[in-house]
Design a protein around this nucleic acid. Sequence first.
DNA 1: CATTTGACAGGAA
DNA 2: CTTCCTGCCAAAT
Length: 105
Amino acid sequence: MSHSVFTQNVYKIVEAIPQGKVMTYGDVAEKVGSPGAARAVGTAMKNNPDMSKIPCHRVVGSDGGMNGYAFGGQMAKIEKLKQEGVQFRGLKVNLKLSRQGINQK
DNA sequence: CATTTGACAGGAA
DNA sequence: CTTCCTGCCAAAT
């Protein structure tokens, strides 16, 4: 574990995301104490040591869509989230209903 | 130590 | 609603 506190916090937050809920990179960034560090969160995610332990699929963009996660395709991520009970609006997550932590925008 | 890159966000056109 | 540009932060080179 030779990672910075930011990355550690990010992992902790992401792991703490309850099933059926999602969080945006910006929200996670704010949670770890670095508001605006949404990109840094993405950096930590791809550094992701345990993808089986870290539900990075529950982390979505500010628009409720997915930018990365090239693991089986975005489709797999969407289906996975749907299966967990996340409300979808087309191909994007309905943050208004399935956002965790902070209220909607 | 300086520069570039990247799984982002928000505003403008 | 879609596309382009700018700003931010941390990690990698």
